[in-house]
Design a protein around this nucleic acid. Structure first.
Lengths: 164, 164
DNA sequence: TCAAAATTAGAACAATATTCTATTATTAAT
DNA sequence: ATTAATAATAGAATATTGTTCTAATTTTGA
């Protein structure tokens, strides 16, 4: 697979069945010992070690992070916020996205097609702090047309991993 | 902070400034050495080691995972799918959520208030596979009223971490 | 103010990651 | 199909880091 262009993917690394199994395990828990992954895959420590290094080197694995229980840190009030811009000039779009990146309450932000222009996931402590966030930070950004907030009643599933 | 009830949080663990710094570091990169975190926090290895263990033991940290570059594994076609149910009986809701949990293409699913009942994040290879997913898996679930798919044009921000 | 409990530092030890060498398997060209 | 070159693997050797231990220090609560 070959793409032309600047900063685009040049090729898709071929992952064999063992790589896929390994990636699945690492997406579940990246803190097991090499030996544990090796036993699961019926390979030697070295084989697994080299495969992980290759996945890192080729950019398949981008990092390793700790996950938190949001309720334990008082950030379990989640809102999906839909935003419509007034005007879609390139400058407006870029400036909006730049401003959003500064907001620590926003954990996800997607530019989408359809009814609204952006869908954001926002994590705060409670409704009061959401209101505060809205009036002092979000709507302070220029060029926002209107917003629609969908409050999360229940997190059915929330995983950073992708099935391959 | 104290709550009454079954399966609710009993107390919120008090995190001091060092804990918060540490959690922030671990959410960025959980594979550094204890010594590296210790240097950053101006603490000894043991102090950091014990703090991490406590964060794990008290459930603040729920796990450690590898993050992937979705484009490298051909799962960079992302769709935010809004779903309305026909009927909201308890059984219908539970059955719907149970079915959603089985779908590996769905990485996030939130039960929300507002215009729609559920907002899903779906990761597949391309539009063709999304169509396939829609007609064979998603709409095969009973009790779905209608859906609205917002295709992601650009991921402005997509992080599993929360700012505390 | 004092005793009890928790936190921390530094050393000692155990476990694991990483490197090295040799062997085996895979690939690509003839 | 054969062979040379390359890549992947296993097992041993080494280096690094995680984990435990002990003592000292700080914090907490009466």
């Amino acid at each position: 697979m070959l793409y032309i262009g600047f900063n685009r993917k040049i090729f898709t690394m071929e992952l064999d069945a063992l790589d896929k199994q390994l990636v699945a395990l690492l997406q579940e828990d990246c803190k097991k010992t090499t030996k544990q992954y090796a036993d699961a895959l019926q390979l030697s420590k070295t084989a697994v070690y080299e495969r992980i290094r290759r996945l890192e080197r080729t950019g398949v694995i981008t990092g390793y992070v700790a996950l938190l229980n949001k309720s334990k840190v008082n950030r379990d009030f989640t809102v999906m916020c839909h935003i419509r811009l007034v005007q879609h000039t390139k400058e407006n779009v870029l400036r909006f996205e730049r401003e959003i990146l500064k907001l620590e309450e926003v954990s996800e932000c997607f530019h989408v097609g359809g009814d609204y222009d952006y869908i954001l996931k926002i994590n705060v402590e409670d409704m009061k702090s959401y209101r505060e966030f809205m009036i002092t930070k979000l709507t302070a950004i220029n060029n926002i047309g209107n917003t629609q907030s969908s409050f999360v009643i229940n997190e059915v599933k929330n995983s950073p991993s992708v099935h391959i």
